[in-house]
Design a protein around this nucleic acid. Structure first.
Length: 593
RNA sequence: GGGCCAGUAGCUCAGCUGGAUAGAGCACCUCCCUUCUAAGGAGGCGGUCAAAGGUUCGAAUCCUUUCUGGCUCACCA
């Protein structure tokens, strides 16, 4: 962005020289020149009229004239209404390009910020397999972590595994009742899917028992509490909390099945974690904090003995922190867990929770209470809230069996990629294992890109049948362009990464240089706003422009050796930027496809 | 009922702190492979930016109201 800085400084000087006024740089508005107009950067002069006291056209004309005479990077200018369009010398662009070309880490932050972030994502329950919503969560969390690293931060990826509670006992109990000692080995099922099967089995039996009770004349609410199997599950939870050896052993065994299943899913997804927290270890945390808060009069106790936090000064309802019987709730645990994490990592600048937007309120309350207690680091806590993934038929509902399973979805996109690639790919001479890797790259790349290109905050629609889309704003489109570039580079064998600087640039070349110039600030912005979508959309724009360049100009067939060298060099650099950018999204790029 | 978020082309989405004639992709219709990978490119069709007011040189963007949808306000996690 050195070109931009140069212009801004010169605009300040111009105003000083022409109107004897000093203007803060925030008041200077410079944007990319729209395609319909000639120029590279545009100064919007409307905000300057107060200073110039002249018409927009006249002001722009005066500014342009001064800048052209006093800046050594300008080539020409033109004025359209209140817009001053500035053209930068080709040589300046090429000088810039040579700087980027030499920089292996172009786009990333050059130095460490010294800051450390913890990013939490995934955090599944251990009673059923991962689904489409988890995919968005995992891809998002992983990508944000990578983007923060690219911004020079140190990052720890973590998750809290919800491995205890009544819902876990439900699948355990159903397995005891109906399982006949079925195991992942004996059934050939992935552990998490096996457990999920018994969770469903519990629900089925539970409903049956409720129906029977209601049929016998009971109110349905009472029936839900009185059903035998439900009471058994509660009893099992009490045993678990008392560390009953038999229940505990069963719990360990079944969780181990789930973890080995999750492990395979995570590997397939391409995500990983640096540190795991288990709810079975953390659910007791937080009580002492609440007790201390009570002693410090930050919280209060009701007559029944329950402990609450008054949030009326934040216009929220009071929040329960300890039940009358002294047991804790979700909020209590989360308070404890957050504090634990800051104990484990004393230098955290931020703790980012990748959790769906249905928990917006929960996190608002959590952060507020942490601040109330007096933890100043709570300022660095951030809820990376993302919208639900809906099907064309509406929300996924497990009761209606419309949940899209993560493993199955990944399998099916890879299969789709295989069929498409066999139809039109360039796979001569590749071994089967390389081909299989390629199908995975394309299928999963398409899926990840699809889920990440949408602004995280927004809800999105997902049509499993559309996911195989390969044209337009998709992962495979970007991958294809990368593969194309690699094909060119293979043909030329050796090349220089830089370029001569006395070339006359074609419009298509200049557009690419402008795109490249924005890459560092896109990474920065994506980091600040925790938005992989910004990177995805940037890369799409870059790739579109590259394809246009590719189509309209010869590269290795260009006769002028300097032009040829530049076009190869810029192709290489565009390829590098695509690769890095996709890496930050967790998407791989293939050498050929 | 209170709070938060959203509503942009037939569909899926961009549009950053207000700036030029609101952009892509899909779908539909034309063209372009004896030329570096056609999973590509060039073009066409398609809009009252939910509605109404307001703020100003200028509003999809900011403010107010209304309508519609989602989430939430659990002694579930």
């Amino acid at each position: 962005m050195r070109v931009l800085d140069n212009i801004i400084q010169n605009v300040v000087k111009a105003i000083e020289a022409l109107y004897s006024q000093e203007l803060p740089i925030q008041q200077i508005q410079i944007q990319k020149t729209k395609k319909e107009f000639e120029g590279d950067l545009t100064l919007v002069v409307f905000p300057l009229l107060k200073v110039t006291k002249k018409s927009p056209e006249q002001s722009a004309e005066e500014m342009g004239n001064w800048l052209l005479g006093n800046s050594n990077i300008l080539n020409s200018y033109n004025v359209v209404k209140g817009f001053l369009n500035l053209s930068i010398e080709d040589k300046i662009w090429l000088d810039q390009f040579n700087v980027w070309a030499r920089d292996e880490n172009f786009g990333k932050s050059t130095s460490s910020t010294g800051k450390t972030f913890m990013v939490e994502y995934s955090s599944p329950n251990t009673n059923k397999p991962l689904h489409l919503g988890h995919l968005r969560n995992n891809f998002l969390g992983y990508s944000v972590a990578e983007i923060l690293k690219a911004n020079g931060h140190e990052v720890y990826k973590t998750q809290i595994i919800n491995d205890r509670g009544i819902h876990i006992c439900k699948s355990m109990l159903a397995w005891q009742l109906f399982g006949n000692n079925e195991t992942p080995e004996s059934s050939g099922m992935k552990g998490d899917h096996l457990i999920g099967k018994y969770y469903v089995a519990f629900d089925k039996e539970y409903k049956k028992q409720i129906a029977e009770l209601v049929h016998g004349g009971m109110e349905s609410k009472d029936a839900e509490r009185e059903a035998e199997i439900f009471k058994d599950a509660q009893a099992m939870l009490r045993k678990w909390e008392a560390r009953d050896p038999e229940v505990y052993r069963l719990w360990e065994t079944m969780n181990a099945w789930v973890y080995s299943g999750f492990e395979r899913t995570y590997t397939e997804m391409g995500v990983d974690f640096d540190k795991l927290y288990y709810e079975s270890n953390t659910y007791i945390l937080g009580k002492d904090v609440v007790e201390k808060g009570l002693a410090d009069n930050i919280f209060y106790k009701k007559e029944d003995g329950s402990v609450w936090c008054d949030l009326s000064d934040h216009k929220m309802d009071d929040k329960l922190l300890l039940r009358a019987d002294g047991t804790s709730v979700y909020m209590t645990q989360d308070l404890g867990t957050a504090i634990e994490r800051y104990k484990d990592y004393t230098n955290l600048s931020g703790l980012i929770y990748t959790v769906g937007n249905e928990q917006n309120h929960h996190f608002k309350v959590l952060f507020t209470i942490l601040k109330k207690i007096g933890y100043s680091w709570a300022e660095g806590c951030y809820h990376l809230s993302y919208g639900m993934v809906d099907l064309p038929t509406g929300r996924m509902k497990s009761r209606e069996g419309t949940v899209v399973d993560a493993d199955e979805l990944m399998k099916s996109v890879i299969q789709d990629a295989k069929e498409m690639t066999q139809e039109r790919g360039h796979l001569d001479g590749l071994s089967d294992s390389v081909k299989d890797e390629l199908y995975k790259t394309i299928g999963l790349g398409g899926l990840k890109y699809y889920l990440l290109k949408v602004d995280p905050k927004k809800g999105m629609q997902f049509n499993p049948e559309d996911s195989v889309d390969l044209n337009g704003n998709t992962g495979p489109f970007i991958q294809y362009t990368y593969a194309r570039i690699q094909s060119i580079l293979r043909k030329v064998e050796t090349f220089h990464k830089g370029s001569e600087t006395d070339l006359l640039l074609e419009p298509a070349e200049k557009i690419l240089l402008k795109d490249l110039s924005e890459f560092p600030s896109v990474i920065e912005e994506a980091g600040k706003s925790y938005s992989p979508a910004l990177l995805a959309n940037y890369t799409y724009e870059l790739v579109k422009n590259y394809n246009s360049f590719y189509q309209s100009l010869s590269i290795i067939k260009e006769e002028d050796p300097n032009k040829k060298a530049f076009r190869i060099a810029i192709s290489y650099k565009v390829g590098e930027v695509i690769k890095l950018s996709m890496q930050l999204l967790g998407v791989n790029v293939p050498e050929r496809m």
